[in-house]
Amino acid sequence: MEQILANGLYLGAQYALIALGLTLIFSLMNVLNFAHGQMYVFGGFVTYTVVAQLGLPFIVGLLASAVVLAVMGALIEKFLFRPVIRRSKRDESTMLLAAGIAFFLDAVILLLFGEKQRGVPKIVNGVFNWDMRLIMPYDRILIAMAAVALIVGFILFMQYSRTGRAMRALAQDRVAAQLMGVDVDRYSMIGFAMGAMLAGLVGGLLVTITGINLGMGGPTSVKAFLMIMIGGAGVISGAIAGGFILGMMESVGLTVLAAYGDITYLVIFVTLMIFLAIRPQGLMGKPWG
């Protein structure tokens, strides 16, 4: 039991971090970022390149992922989403753009990094073993703690910094924020950059444990959508809750339902659909997004 809970928390911490980036972008710009999973994969490959190929320390790789993805996010917002949002008749047009970017990033990853599964060596060795009741490698514990630290840092940033306040205002009411003198374009760009950066950071963190490959992008996006649906789209606390709930459900499901075959995700999906039929806006979301 302790093992299941620990696994759930470990998964949840990573998931929450992925969901945070997605929900940030959604709340600021009303864009469902289909390319989020690809950004995560890209971040993983950047860390891999810096650590395994250039031989630099892991922390440098992580920083490189964050910087590369933040710049990528900012450029994507400025040159792609902004003009399309301004000119299209329906908000949904951004979905085509986001899906196009997802394909594009897939192509770029394929050309730059190839299609092989990549990983970097463990950053710390050894396994934490509590009386055989709870076994967890130290590097997993470290990564989970790093993820939690990043989540806390993100919340503090959103809560207390000037930029964070501006972005929260923007998420609440775009027009009102603009009237109060918030530079909407600038903070949309920063928000998108931060969302992409979070995706890249998770990729960088996980490349040490699960490794990374080209095919992980799409499924990661689907999981991230699940999380923000559970918690409510565009709400930061909801994304964190959604991440931990999904992580826990996955961990419990894989153990309890193992006897019935590979149906964990089927059960999770069906549960979610029933839940959404009763509470469409998720746990903490605003009705109708």
Binding site: L32, V222, F225, M229, Y265, L266, F269, M273, G289
Partner: peptide, 15 residues
């Protein structure tokens, strides 16, 4: 509505 419906239908394909 909106992205909620979009995301649920996406999940439906997986289901």
């Amino acid at each position: 509505r909106g992205v909620y419906f979009a995301m649920v239908t996406l999940v439906l394909t997986e289901v």
